[in-house]
Computed example of a mutant assay.
Amino acid sequence: MRAERLRRGEDGERGSAVVDFVMVSLLIVALLLAVLQVAVYVHVRNVVTASAQEGARYAANADVGSAPGAARTVEIVAAATSVRTAQGMACTSEEELDTSGATLVVVRWSGSVPSLLAALGDVLPLEVTGRAMKEAA
C-alpha cells in the first residue's frame, strides 16, 4: 500500500499546503501594506496641500503679516494628521512679487511622509507650495 501511495506522489507532497499558504499570505500582506502606504501618502499630500493653501490665504489678509501663514499651516496639518508628521516637515512663509507686480504670500512645505513600517523611516518626499494674493492695507 505504501508503494502505491509513493507512485501517486501523496507522501511527497505532505505538508506542502502549509508552505503554499505561508508564501501566498506573505505576498498578500506585502501588497496590503503597499496599498495602505499609497493611501497614507495621498492623504498626507492632500492634507498638506490644502493646509498650505489655507495658510497662504490666512497670511494674505490685510491685517496679518506673512510669517503667521507657516504657523497656521503647521497647526492645520498637526490637527488633521499627527503632531509628528507636522513637526517632521519644514514650513516657510514669505511674500513675493509675481509677473504682474501683485504681492503674493507663498507658503512652502517640504519634508517626507512617514512610512507604515518604522524600520523604513521617512522615505517618501513631499514638497508643496500654497499661494494667495496679498490684500491691500
Rank of each mutant, 00 (worst) to 15 (best):
T92Y: 10
L31T: 07
A60I: 02
V48N: 05
V22C: 10
A62F: 04
N61E: 14
G15Y: 02
G12S: 13
N46A: 13
A59E: 04
V64Y: 04
V35D: 07
E94G: 12
T92S: 15
V42P: 00
V106W: 10
V64E: 09
A59Q: 07
G55D: 01
G88K: 05
V24Q: 11
T99S: 15
E94L: 08
L33E: 07
A71Q: 07
G101W: 10
V22L: 13
A59D: 10
E54W: 01
D20N: 13
I28G: 12
D20I: 13
V107L: 09
A80T: 01
S66Q: 12
A67L: 09
S66H: 14
V47M: 06
V38G: 12
V29T: 13
S66P: 12
L27F: 13
A59Y: 04
E96M: 10
A62Q: 10
V35C: 00
L104I: 10
Q37F: 04
G12P: 04
E13M: 15
E13K: 14
V47S: 06
G69F: 06
A71V: 11
V74E: 12
A90R: 14
E75V: 05
Q53Y: 08
A90E: 14
E94D: 12
V42Y: 06
S100D: 14
S51N: 02
G101T: 07
W109S: 08
V107Y: 00
A52W: 11
C91L: 06
E96D: 13
M23F: 15
V64C: 03
G15P: 08
G69T: 00
A71R: 03
A78C: 04
V77E: 11
A39N: 02
A90I: 04
A52R: 00
V107R: 00
V105E: 08
M89L: 03
A80W: 03
W109G: 03
V48Q: 11
L26C: 05
A78M: 11
E75P: 00
E13F: 15
V29I: 15
T103R: 15
T49C: 04
L32G: 09
S93T: 05
A52Y: 04
A70G: 09
G88L: 05
V18E: 11
V77F: 08
T81V: 14
V83Q: 14
S100G: 08
T85S: 04
I76A: 04
T103S: 12
A70C: 00
H43E: 04
E95M: 11
D20V: 13
V19Q: 05
M89F: 07
Q37E: 07
L31V: 07
G111D: 05
H43Q: 12
V38T: 09
L27W: 08
I28P: 03
S93Y: 02
V47R: 02
S66N: 09
A67P: 00
V105H: 08
G69E: 01
G65L: 01
R108I: 02
R84N: 14
A60L: 06
F21S: 07
R45W: 09
A67Y: 01
L33S: 01
